[in-house]
Design a binder for these strands. Structure first.
Lengths: 93, 93
DNA sequence: TAAAGTAGTTTATTTTTTAAACCAAATTTT
DNA sequence: AAAATTTGGTTTAAAAAATAAACTACTTTA
């Protein structure tokens, strides 16, 4: 009847991060912060969870002498997002 | 960019309950338990939350000497479900 | 009448979320 | 050139949510 929904994507902020990355493919911390309107702490925490799950990869580097965190969606992340969308459909006929 | 998602519906079990009631309009406790494959405790807790929010109305009665809990979706519940679906779309283009 | 089943509710543990505090380095102000 | 502020985050800790397990109350069966 109802499909299991990936709990990692059943979260507004993590879904927004993934949704943005599905299109943009990569984004730095501040861009994600602007796009999702999240607080830095919450964003940092949710990025870590997506990274641990292997849905995104995170590169920590520097730009103009400031730390720069770049997030990229992985193939696994794309698959999880697509599956989530498909599973979600079972809840709306 | 991304719409706020009703936290009450951003829960697998509550969404399943509401999804079922969107079609069936009403269901008793055991039917919901079967349809959603939830444990009784979890179902009881989530029904209470949906009731408190006014998304469903709950009638406690008896049938064949056993307690019978009937859940019905309200107009507010229908609106919330429709709005949730609409808002969710912003995450999938 | 004791055991088992039905229909739930309550309790309590675990997980999640999220705001607030913190850190290190860079920049600006005085 | 200190002191204060800003940037780009991370860590912590308190609050909220999810859920399994225990419990209640009544009924049926053996």
């Amino acid at each position: 009847m109802f499909k299991e929904l990936d709990p990692l994507l059943l979260s507004q902020l993590r879904l927004a991060i993934m949704s943005y990355l599905m299109v943009a493919r990569e984004a730095d911390f501040n861009l994600l912060k602007e796009q999702t309107e999240a607080t830095a702490g919450n964003l940092s925490a949710q990025i870590s969870k997506l990274q641990e799950a292997g849905y995104i990869e995170v590169e920590k580097t520097y730009r103009n002498n400031y730390p720069l965190t770049i997030c990229r969606i992985t193939e696994k992340g794309v698959e999880a997002f697509d599956a989530f969308y498909k599973d979600l459909k079972s809840y709306f006929e």
